[in-house]
Amino acid sequence: MRYLRQLQGGEDFPPSSEALDYPSGLLAVGGELSPERLLGAYRRGIFPWFEEPQPVLWWTPDPRSVLFPENLHISRSLRKTLRSDCFSLAVDQRFEHVMRECAQLRKDGLGTWIGPAMLGAYCDLHALGHAHSIEVLDAHGELVGGLYGLAVGRSFFGESMFSRETDASKVALVALVDIIRRGGFRVIDCQVESQHLNSLGAQNICREDFERLLDETIDVAHDLNVWRLPPTCGELL
């Protein structure tokens, strides 16, 4: 029988093989959300997901949902949206705003796990240059879609996305893929499978393959100058 590890102080994470089968991928509980702790976790494919004010829960699911940039699927309708040039784009201009939008309760009931502690922790990572946001704006300059996540080496760990207009979050993903292709990134971590991400080209791989992929990419630096986008979505095609 596997037991959930309670992290004490600066104690390191246990091996991913000790993660529970149910709930799937739960590895440890406790610890803090310092930049050092978070970066150390992501380097091993571990991420926090919990509802405040409960203790931090750390996860490493098996299988793992990932999107390889070459597999991005742009549907006919999404291609039409991009061609319409109806959205403008920005990078890292409204990081906290994007997180707060992602934290709003959605129709499917998800989103509430981004509490004040998570918000502060990832804003700290953003200030240090590790966390990035893609912003999609309407004709009036209002934020209507976006996503955020961490770039470590040549792996990008997607955290959450939101959309207030049709296709806005999908446009954000297309924009992200444009960046990571130019940066030589190998993979976008999507964490847990969803039909939405599958429709865009995501797939499941086993935890061992994911960790092997991290070993090949996590220490390979990328050019920070790739974090820029054309001003409008039509130029992504």
Rank of each mutant, 00 (worst) to 15 (best):
L4G: 06
L7E: 01
G9L: 10
F13P: 03
P15D: 08
D21F: 07
P23G: 09
A28L: 04
V29C: 12
G30V: 06
E32Q: 10
E32C: 04
L38R: 02
L38T: 01
L39V: 06
A41N: 03
Y42H: 05
R43P: 02
R44A: 00
G45Q: 04
P48T: 05
F50G: 01
P53R: 10
D62I: 04
P63D: 10
V66R: 09
N71M: 11
N71R: 15
L78W: 03
S84G: 07
F87M: 05
V91C: 12
R94L: 12
V98R: 12
R100E: 14
C102D: 09
A103Q: 07
Q104I: 05
L105V: 10
K107M: 11
D108G: 07
G109M: 11
L110M: 12
G111T: 08
G111L: 12
I114F: 11
G120Y: 06
L125Q: 05
L125E: 07
G129L: 10
H130L: 04
A131F: 07
A131M: 07
H132K: 09
L137G: 07
A139V: 10
G141W: 09
Y148V: 05
G149L: 06
A151P: 06
V152C: 09
V152I: 15
S155E: 08
F157R: 04
M161P: 02
T166L: 14
K170A: 09
V171D: 04
V171H: 05
A172N: 02
V174L: 05
V174G: 06
A175V: 03
A175T: 07
V177Y: 08
V177H: 08
V177E: 10
D178S: 15
I179W: 02
I180F: 07
R181F: 05
D189A: 08
Q191E: 02
Q195A: 15
L200N: 08
A202T: 01
N204A: 14
R207V: 00
D209N: 12
L214K: 01
T217E: 15
V220W: 09
A221T: 00
A221C: 06
D223R: 00
N225T: 14
N225Q: 14
R228C: 13
L229Y: 04
G234Q: 01
L236E: 06
L237T: 06
